[in-house]
Nucleic acid binder design. Structure first.
Lengths: 349, 349
DNA sequence: CTCTTTTGTGAAAGCGCGTTTATTTTTCAA
DNA sequence: TTGAAAAATAAACGCGCTTTCACAAAAGAG
């Protein structure tokens, strides 16, 4: 069924059918109704490719999730408590705005070619990228395409270096620095002086922010920044578990840990439990992200909440707006974070 | 950059460029190399819409996740331990086969129109549908489109009723009946005689299979099928928690529960813990799905494992094959399930 | 060295729709 | 009745690519 068939059945011209479909004003209500009736009776839907070729948009957004997990063990993204709610909300919000979502996972630079391809082949009008690490090559490659894209959780300064003649980019961030500082300050106020840091990957925006906030808050409060910061946690539960266990068995045991994400906080709790340490009796733990299980644990995990829903919605609205209005000026939004106090932190003995 | 530009730069005609791109045999190696060089130098990618209009496929698969969660509280699909691994594996497998994935969540019959739209507008070559409940309307609507689709976890008999002149459908199932029967038989072998069932939604294929397996296995072993089967669990942890708590406070307390999925088993464990019942000392619990946390709990949950990875891969391969070879004959695959014995089941006191 | 095959190549048509232009038909006011 | 404005149409073009068909060049046969 093509528009020509509809025209014939409705007894009008193809031009009129097109005007009806695209909601043009200069078609009287009576004609419109007549045409709409035929369209609905025949379940006609205009061919997307033909529309695009004739100058309309694809009405599709690319959603690219960049994973640092190796390809051998890929089952981690959608089950990852950080990415999953982003993906879910973005898909729903974009859909509700009348756009479709092309989803793609990126495990390697090779996979990344597919992202460029999707843009160049005009499969999508714009893209949302989440999980991008500090990577000049990738970002520049995308920026060069001069098509709208939104980065979630990225270093604005880094992006600005790649601005070309026009701006097609936006960044959605959360105030991780402030959130982490709140958590650390909270631990200090409880009386902790020896606080350990379980850091995430420092080539991510949030990893760096949370790290810096820890160090600077400690210094600001005239506390000693520990030498044995755990750097190889990589945001992964198992890694944190191993590192924390090792640290706890040494002499210099901290009375509290600030973990750069909840997954690693869970790993730390695993380690404590295994060594027979009470939480929060013997050791306090604060996390970051406030993943759903955080509140269901016992003891429930004190954590910093990320406004994932709001960030996702913002990303979706941003990209759709950019697609519809062509390029817009560069913009960036930073959402507030919030310390959720639960049961895993107490005064030191 | 269009194919014409490439043709000019390479000193050939557009036809030749097209032949190179589509890997036609009748172009000599020398010409091919010359054209490829220009293509790569200019990062040329053919416009997808134009290709489709000229008769090629979209190289895109629709992935439709049907949720029973209400729209008010939609954040459940990708964080749902059942759907998430399916989505993840399907996306990756389809991508690796050179296809893109259009993902869409369906919360209502209204959303479902979007599924039809995606097919009719020729945005996708075929679709994978997961989470479809027994719903003649929806299934028939899809079947009528005469485009390839794969249903995961669906009643084959029901689908067969909607076959039209040609077959474009395939079904991927797991042997839930056998798995559930194994679990129930295991409980019986441990010596349990009063076994409770926490059932899932009976309008899903897996819900019915697991229910029937329970009832028939009990009868087969000459045990009394309890009157108070929990029917309103709906596969949801919280609902199961409430129902189990109520049941446990009544006189007729079973010595074991078989839960139609792990989420509800978790709810049952919540209830037991709250009432001070030891697992597996006072009460045994077996679940279904073997979600990742099952093995991390203490006590670790005995459960029936679903070969999600294999099922997802099969679905992906199936749909791509169907898209490339046009329609194929109707096919269905049923994957084996496996009882994973852990710590939540023991002999009754 | 001609005459067929084979191989390589290009011109042109067509995919389904949107848009524009020139033209015809209808409507309504004067 | 006339004239202007509004509504609708037909026809043509273009979007970027694939594909068919016809033709030219190269290769092989006699």
């Amino acid at each position: 069924m093509r528009s020509e068939d509809i025209a014939r059945l409705a007894g009008v011209s193809r031009s009129t059918v097109s005007r009806v479909i695209n909601n043009y004003s200069n078609v009287p209500e009576k004609t419109r109704a007549k045409v709409m009736k035929v369209i609905e009776e025949n379940h006609y839907e205009p061919n997307t490719s033909a529309r695009v070729l004739a100058g309309k948009g694809m009405n599709t957004i690319g959603l690219f999730v960049i994973s640092t997990a190796d390809k051998q063990n890929p089952n981690r993204i959608y089950q990852n408590n950080y990415f999953a709610p982003f993906v879910e909300t973005i898909v729903d919000t974009v859909n509700r705005m009348g756009y479709y979502v092309l989803i793609h996972t990126v495990y390697s630079e090779d996979d990344f070619l597919k992202v460029k391809q999707a843009f160049l082949q005009k499969r999508i009008d714009g893209g949302i990228i989440i999980g991008m690490e500090k990577n000049a090559g990738m970002v520049h490659a995308i920026a060069k395409l001069e098509l709208p894209f939104v980065l979630i959780d990225y270093d604005i300064a880094e992006l600005l270096e790649h601005r070309l003649d026009k701006d097609y980019a936006a960044v959605i961030n959360s105030k991780d620095y402030e959130g982490a500082a709140m958590a650390v300050r909270y631990l200090i106020e409880l009386g902790h002086e020896h606080i350990g840091l379980i850091s995430g990957r420092l080539n991510t925006q949030s990893g760096r922010q949370r790290y810096q906030a820890f160090v600077e808050t400690m210094e600001e409060q005239r506390l000693e920044v520990p030498e044995e910061i755990i750097l190889s946690g990589e945001f992964i539960r198992q890694k944190a578990y191993e590192e924390v266990k090792q640290l706890l068995m040494s002499r210099k045991r901290p009375t509290a840990f600030f973990s750069a994400n909840d997954e690693m906080a869970l790993g730390a709790m695993d380690a404590c439990r295994e060594l027979g340490l009470q939480i929060p009796g013997d050791i306090s733990i604060a996390g970051f992200d406030d993943i759903p299980v955080a509140s269901q644990l016992s003891p429930a995990l004190t954590s910093v909440r990320l406004p994932i829903y709001e960030m996702s919605q913002a990303a979706a609205h941003h990209i759709v707006t950019m697609c519809e209005e062509g390029s817009t000026s560069f913009s960036t939004v930073s959402f507030p974070t919030q310390l959720i106090v639960r049961e895993t932190c107490a005064e030191p003995k």
